[in-house]
Structure formats: structure tokens, C-alpha cells
Nucleic acid binder design. Structure first.
Length: 465
RNA sequence: GUCCCCAUCGUCUAGAGGCCUAGGACACCAGCCUUUCACGUUGGCAGCACGGGUUCGAAUCCCGUUGGGGACGCCA
């Protein structure tokens, strides 16, 4: 039987980094075994589900390269089927009608808590009820929990996990308003979608035993389960907004590359020897869900940043130039075709010194604009009278310099040599004049990328300014 | 509270009884490289939570303690 996995987020907010990792594991597992990876939107909570959230989740997955192999399944559309299964369980005698009101249940729960006693639902009176004595309130359908023994799950990540059936109680599968509960709907959908492996956050581990009740009562085959640990913030607490960026799209906006985010997420909780940097293509060949660790991992932005730098340096220059130009345009930086070409030309040297696309845009701006770039304070301070004189002198000779990168370097060295100054005394003022900053790619690369005319303009402007 | 899961440097991890004086990566510190900043490179700092077993031998197996996390809804 072909492997089928699914990622099943509920559209009550943006897709956060933990969900993204769950999706990644589902994707990798399916690919590794030549199966399918599906998406199911769990939108049965009408109060909290929004179309915008659905859109965001789809966009996030698309950005991460984790789009599903089949169109997404919307759980809300399957409610008739959920109800049908619930009624089937009722007919089989595996479930019964319970006429408690939510208020009564809340009171029972409060009472149990006041007595410091664990609450356990007892539906004996409803099971013995003669239909004609039924109260006039609409009933919910509850599934009968197994009486004795224990339920055992062989989890692919957590190993053998067992729970005494005495811990389970008769859970509601269909609410009194006829809508299904999550624990029930998930099982019906996973079964109908022929899901073979359920890979999800380990906050669902104990729920698994409740879900088993439905599988078993329907006589369905249980899928294999794999519960992966949650991601925590740097302080060890559950990851939330206050820890910084957590939404997948936030990382995109901050200039992270999807391949870097995926690589980082993969390493968070999954290890394969000393391998750190690994491509999607390579990991698909070696990914094993059993290699996922059992302990929760903490989000480390510094390491993510490092991965992003690594992937940035490996990224295609045309792609990066496009991304950078889009960011500059968004920031309102004015540039033309010439400027775009200069950024592209300088990209190999630019990307070497950046950690994010935002860094890259910041360091590329000077090459994009026409004319002298804005100068920062440190650069301004470096422009002493001597430095200006140096630039003026340089400008006189630079007109005849050979305009090839290698030649420019040699030419500059000769110039410094002839003038009896250190290369740095020439390079720094030049760097400031050309880039408006004390930091830039190698000066010969900058000169070459700018072109003779543009370079001369900037040098003269700085010499006179 | 009850049940479930987890526990190697600050962080992510390698490690499945002797290969461990515990390896790698990020971060941090120092050096080298160098026209700036990066990149790269060399070295350094730093860890098996604790206590009992089992064994000739334990980071690795068992039990307990402590600590962390999760689940206990007519939420998902």
C-alpha cells in the first residue's frame, strides 16, 4: 500500500514555525517512500476559522515548497460524512445518546475539581435509558470507551506508549447541534483519505488513544503514528509571539530563504551524523522519521541566521538580484535598468557578506542608485581634506585605467606604489566615495560593477563635496 | 491533581555496553588571511541532571528522584 501522509492545520491563525516543521516531516516522509503528501484544513471551528488564515497557510506552504500533492480537503465540507459515521456507531451499539447540557457538565467538572478528584464522565444512566423517557434537550452522541485492559500505540518516534483504558471516558463524537468533534472528524477523514502515517505534534499523543476508540469501534485499521516534539522558544516555554518571529511568512519578509528555513527546521530535532547543511533533494534520500529526536527543541535564531547565510552564498545570482531589486523598489529606492545590472554584476561579492535578503538589499542599494549614494556618518568622517585630495588625484589617472576587474586591482596597487602610500589609504577613500560606506565588496569589484563613467562621477563628487 | 512524553556543552545535535580523555554545528573568545566588512581557516571555552542498581566495563540497560513539556472541553 502506498504511503500517504497529511498535514492538518486549523485555520485559526498564521502558519507558525512548528506547524511548518510538521508539514516538512510529512512531506519528507511521503517523498522518501514514494507516496503522497496531502493537506487537510481543519476548519470545523466556525468561530475561529477564517478564509484569510487559510490563504496564509496555503501561501506559507507554497513559499516553503511544501504544497500538497492533491487539492486540500476541507474538513467542514465533510460534516455529513462525520455524522453518518457517528450514527453508524450508534446503530452498532458502540455509541449512545447523552442528554447532558454543557452547563450540567461544567458543574460536574467544577465539583470534581473542588473535591480534588479527577473528573471522569459517567454515562451509565443514558445507556440504560428508555427512549420514551428521553429529556427534551437535543442529545450528543458519545462513543463507549473500552472497559478494561489497555490501549497500546507503537509510535514511530516515541516508541511504545500504553495507557490503561480506565483513563479513557466516553467522549462526544457528535455534538448536540449535529456537528462532529475534532477527535472524531480526524479519524473519519484520515480513514477516508487513506492516510497510512499520521505525523503530527506530540501535543496529540494522548489524544491518539481517544482516536483509537473510533478506529477500533468502526473496525478500521489504525494508521501508524509518529508524534514529533514541539518547538519551544529560547526560554524553553511554548513558542509564541513574544519570542520574536514565529509565522512562516514573517521569515520570508525578514529576508530568509525558504531552503534555509527548511534546513534549519529539519536540523531542529532531526539528526543524521554530523550533517548540517543539506538540500531538499539529498534529505529526501536519507530521511527517516525514526531519526527524529524525542525531546522538545528550542528555537535558536542565531543558528537560523547562520544557515541563511550559507544558503544565500550558494544561491543563484540572478534570483538574488531579482529579490534584492524587489525589496529596494518596495523601500522606495529609485533605480533603473543600469542600476539593476550593476547590482547583478556585484551579486557574487555582495552575497558573500550578507546573512539575509534584507542585509543584501541594504548593501546593494548604493550600486542600484544613479549618482553619488547617500553617505553614512563614518564614511563622511573618513573624507578628510587629504582623502579628498587623494580622490582628486586618483580621478586624474583613473580615466586611463584598464576597466577589467583583475586589471583594476593591479592598477590600484601600482598607483599606491608609485605614490608611495599604502593600498588602504587609497582604497578606503575610494570605497567611501563609491559606496557611501566604509564597508563594501572589494574595491576593484565595485569599480568594475559601477563602470567608468558612474565611478568617475562619484569620485569627483566626493572629492569636491 | 491524574495520565502520558522527555532529559549529552548556553543552543541544535552525534552517540544504540568497551572505538568516549564524549565528536560536530551555532554563539562566544583569541590568532591567521586581508584594500574595508564579511567569507575562510587555526585554536580555545563549555556537557552526559542527581541517586541507586545490572555488568569485568554504562552517556548508552533497569529503578527511583528532580527538572521540563503535553493531555485531561459539546476547541482544534
Amino acid at each position: 500500500m502506498s504511503v500517504r501522509t497529511r498535514f492538518a492545520p486549523s485555520p485559526t491563525g498564521y502558519l507558525h514555525i512548528g506547524g511548518a516543521r510538521t508539514a516538512l516531516f510529512n512531506y519528507l516522509f511521503a517523498r522518501r517512500h514514494g507516496g503522497q503528501y496531502l493537506l487537510r484544513i481543519e476548519d470545523t471551528d466556525k468561530q475561529r476559522s477564517t478564509p484569510e488564515a487559510v490563504r496564509q497557510i496555503l501561501d506559507s506552504l507554497d513559499w516553503l515548497g511544501l504544497s500538497p500533492d492533491e487539492p486540500p480537503v476541507y474538513q467542514s465540507a465533510r460534516e455529513p460524512r462525520h455524522a453518518e459515521v457517528a450514527r453508524e456507531l450508534l446503530a452498532k451499539g458502540a455509541a449512545y445518546l447523552a442528554y447532558d447540557t454543557p452547563e450540567e457538565l461544567a458543574a460536574l467538572r467544577a465539583e470534581a475539581e473542588a473535591q480534588k478528584r479527577p473528573f471522569k464522565y459517567d454515562g451509565a444512566k443514558w445507556q440504560a435509558l428508555d427512549p420514551k423517557d428521553a429529556p427534551s434537550v437535543p442529545p450528543a452522541i458519545r462513543i463507549k470507551a473500552p472497559r478494561g485492559g489497555e490501549t497500546v500505540v507503537e509510535d514511530l518516534v516515541q516508541g511504545t506508549v500504553r495507557v490503561a483504558n480506565a483513563e479513557l471516558d466516553d467522549m462526544i463524537i457528535l455534538r448536540s447541534d449535529g456537528t462532529p468533534t475534532y477527535l472524531h472528524a480526524v479519524v473519519v477523514d484520515d480513514h477516508d483519505m487513506a492516510i497510512t502515517h499520521v505525523i503530527r505534534g506530540d501535543d496529540h499523543l494522548t489524544n491518539t488513544f481517544r482516536q483509537c476508540m473510533v478506529y477500533d469501534a468502526m473496525g478500521w485499521h489504525r494508521p501508524r503514528f509518529a508524534h514529533v516534539p514541539l518547538i519551544h522558544g529560547a526560554d524553553g516555554a511554548k513558542l509564541s509571539k513574544r519570542h520574536g518571529a514565529v509565522g512562516a511568512l514573517e521569515f520570508r519578509d525578514q529576508g530568509f530563504l525558504p531552503e534555509a528555513v527548511c534546513n534549519y527546521l529539519l536540523r531542529l530535532g532531526w539528526g543524521h551524523g554530523d550533517t548540517e547543511v543539506i538540500s531538499r533533494e539529498d534529505v529526501v534520500r536519507i530521511f527517516d522519521i525514526g531519526d527524529v529526536g524525542r525531546a522538545a527543541a528550542r528555537m535558536d535564531y542565531a543558528k537560523l541566521l547562520h544557515f541563511n547565510g550559507v544558503w544565500l552564498r550558494q544561491a543563484d545570482d540572478d534570483r538574488l538580484a531579482k529579490e534584492v531589486l524587489a525589496r529596494l523598489a518596495k523601500q522606495g529606492v529609485a533605480f533603473g535598468t543600469l542600476g539593476g545590472d550593476r547590482v547583478r554584476l556585484l551579486m557574487p561579492d555582495l552575497k558573500e557578506r550578507a546573512k539575509t535578503l534584507e542585509d543584501l538589499a541594504g548593501s546593494a542599494a548604493f550600486a542600484a542608485v544613479e549618482g553619488p549614494p547617500p553617505m553614512d556618518a563614518k564614511a563622511q568622517a573618513l573624507l578628510t581634506p587629504e582623502a579628498k585630495a587623494r580622490l582628486a588625484d586618483l580621478a586624474q589617472f583613473l580615466g586611463d585605467a584598464p576597466w577589467e576587474r583583475k586589471d583594476l586591482e593591479a592598477w590600484l596597487r601600482d598607483y599606491a606604489d608609485v605614490k608611495g602610500v599604502k593600498l588602504g589609504q587609497v582604497a578606503q577613500p575610494l570605497r567611501v566615495a563609491l559606496s557611501g560606506s566604509t564597508q563594501s565588496p572589494p574595491i576593484d569589484a565595485v569599480l568594475f560593477a559601477l563602470g567608468r563613467t558612474e565611478a568617475m562621477d562619484r569620485i569627483l563628487a566626493a572629492a569636491e563635496g
